[in-house]
Write a protein that binds this DNA or RNA. Structure first.
Lengths: 168, 168
DNA sequence: TTTATTAAGTCAACATGGCTGACCTTAAAG
DNA sequence: CTTTAAGGTCAGCCATGTTGACTTAATAAA
């Protein structure tokens, strides 16, 4: 196992720091999704189903258009997973009484149960990470990650107050 | 636009905080990958190609086995993208003189150029985020994100000193 | 020196989940 | 009454993950 120095390239400290950030985000996301993926496989679902279940659970009475804005995928891509989730009774749709073109979506009991099972693995991971640090570190984490997000979407991070067209 | 409060579920403060973390990570990763994806499309490549180019560039003379440990995908999945990258002369392979079963991989000039183009968009994003905050926030970001990563892989985050079997 | 293990490669088949493009229905707004 | 908005749908393509089986070459172990 030869000379380590021979492998060092001349990065500026800044570039090294930025690359470490990139790698942290890659590894964190890779592991963050690994546990739900295993649970989803048992149901014949994939990661896309989790995302839909998560954001419908988090934003009761969300519409298709709003969900598309969050996920940033096409309507056709969403349709594939959403249709299956509705057919198998994880998600309910009902017409918005104030604009019957809109379909308000909520989780069914079954959907809530699966959501909880999936998301609890991720919450446990965050809980561990948060407990290994302190309040200031968590606040730093939040501020930096917000800075990574495109400016126009930063408001979404507190979606219960940020998303506007919500109703019952 | 009816009652917002009617939509609030009774989360504990903790659950709310954990869910905000989940969402921050989702949105950050979504946007973090969006710019490279556009560049890759011009070359007929996908996100998987970027990951290979990135980690080969970052770890010159890496072997296939080591790359698989980082990416956590199957050899067959890697083969598809790696074969294409070698065929189109973005990556070089040569036998390790000390163990001729191993193939040491490096970026070609062409590979380095593409790597730089792809990664610079992500470094710019991190640079912006870092500059919007301060040193303590960045350190907090790093510590929390490390906590999210599976313990056995946390050492990888400083890969130039962490990965062992590196040589020239 | 024969045998087992390791590193890498390969073929086939399958599933998920993105995408484009075209087109339809229903309801609301002008 | 026409236009626009919200949602749905069909067909096909592509990228990228998976399992399983099998091969070759080189090193390590018995």
């Amino acid at each position: 196992m030869a000379d380590l120095k021979a492998n060092l390239r001349n990065y500026s400290l800044d570039e090294e720091e930025l690359r470490q950030g990139i790698e942290l985000l890659f590894y964190a996301y890779r592991d963050f999704t690994s546990e739900p993926d295993k649970i989803l496989a048992k149901w014949g679902f994939g990661r896309a189903h989790h995302r839909v279940i998560y954001f419908v659970g988090r934003n009761p009475n969300i519409t298709v258009t709003e969900l598309l804005l969050i996920l940033q995928i096409t309507k056709q891509s969403l349709a594939r997973v959403l249709t299956k989730l509705i057919k198998e009774n994880f998600i309910n749709q009902r017409a918005d009484p104030l604009d019957r073109r809109k379909k308000l979506m909520t989780l069914t009991k079954k959907g809530e149960q699966l959501e909880k099972e999936l998301t609890s693995t991720q919450m446990a991971r965050f809980n561990r990470a948060y407990n290994e640090t302190d309040t200031e570190a968590i606040e730093g984490f939040r501020r930096v990650l917000r800075g990574i997000i495109n400016p126009q979407d930063r408001a979404r991070v507190r979606p219960r107050t940020g998303l506007s067209n919500r109703r019952n």
